[in-house]
């Protein structure tokens, strides 16, 4: 089985996000980047499928130097090889342009039986990329996946999806397919020291827009379907009453209010 697992570099969840001067994005030059959490689950699932059925697990990321770092971690976790989509022209891509670029790279790599992406990223988090990728590639797809069984001989997949309201469904689909992997599908492994050493010898190739045969109007900002007018912290039309004081004082005031005002205890 040939599997390609996508990894998006995102700001470390612990970092404080500040909106940039032009109010079109966050200030990202001083941030540390890590793999988006759902992508760790996706890679773990890819590695488990390989352990069961043999094959090749490639990881794919579009971004600057931060993408190279998350790819190195993915190689240390156990991926066989990595593809870095690196080109200043890729910057400013929306989901549409990102998906088209990723799809072209997968095609250039000869396609795959299975492409895995996260259900949604930790930053922009639109949850569109995987499904768009499937349409660009002409592959079948399933979203919000919490279980995967592959039958490489029959070239089919049996996949469990999580719907709203505690409903799960099982679907069958053929290779090649794109799956968007839901958080919690497995417990991702940590890179071992051996894995980190081995990663240094693994292939990490970089492809540019020209390598992918993508013209300038299809990538990055020109390839985007929309422009960002403004990023802002919304005014909260909230009813919240913030209770102040030291932790002990605030706790005491809160209990008073819950008893006398809200009358819920």
């Amino acid at each position: 089985m040939k599997i390609i697992s996508c990894i998006k570099p995102v700001p470390d969840p612990a970092s404080r996000l500040i909106i940039n001067e032009s109010k079109t994005w966050i200030k990202d030059n001083d941030l540390t980047f890590v793999a988006s959490e759902a992508d760790n689950y996706a890679l773990e699932e890819a590695l488990r499928l390989k352990e069961k059925h043999q094959g090749d697990v490639a990881i794919l990321s579009m971004g600057g130097d931060e993408a190279a770092r998350v790819l190195r971690s993915g190689l240390a976790m156990g991926a066989d090889r990595a593809i870095h989509l690196l080109d200043p022209k890729f910057k400013g891509a929306d989901e549409f342009a990102a998906a088209e670029t990723l799809a072209k790279a997968i095609e250039k790599d000869g396609g795959a039986d299975l492409v895995l992406a996260g259900v949604q990223s930790d930053d922009l988090g639109t949850g569109m990329t995987g499904v768009m990728l499937a349409e660009f590639l002409g592959y079948a797809h399933a979203t919000v996946v919490i279980g995967v069984e592959a039958d490489p001989a029959a070239k089919t997949l049996k996949v469990k999806r999580e719907l709203e309201g505690g409903i799960n469904e099982t679907v069958e689909l053929p290779f090649p397919a794109v799956l968007t992997i839901q958080f919690g599908i497995n417990q991702p492994r940590y890179a071992s020291l051996k894995g980190i050493m081995a990663a240094k010898k693994k292939e990490l190739k970089a492809w540019s827009a020209a390598d992918l045969g993508l013209s300038d109007n299809l990538v990055g900002k020109p390839g985007a379907m929309y422009e960002v007018k403004e990023v802002f912290v919304p005014e909260r039309k909230s009813r919240v009453e913030i209770i102040t004081g030291t932790a002990e004082e605030a706790a005491a005031k809160l209990v008073e209010k819950l008893r006398k005002e809200a009358k819920v205890i």
Partner: peptide, 14 residues
């Protein structure tokens, strides 16, 4: 965007 911490105004193209 960003886990509902921020909003983004977008202008569609074409």
């Amino acid at each position: 965007v960003f886990n509902a911490k921020m909003n983004m105004k977008t202008g569609v193209r074409g």
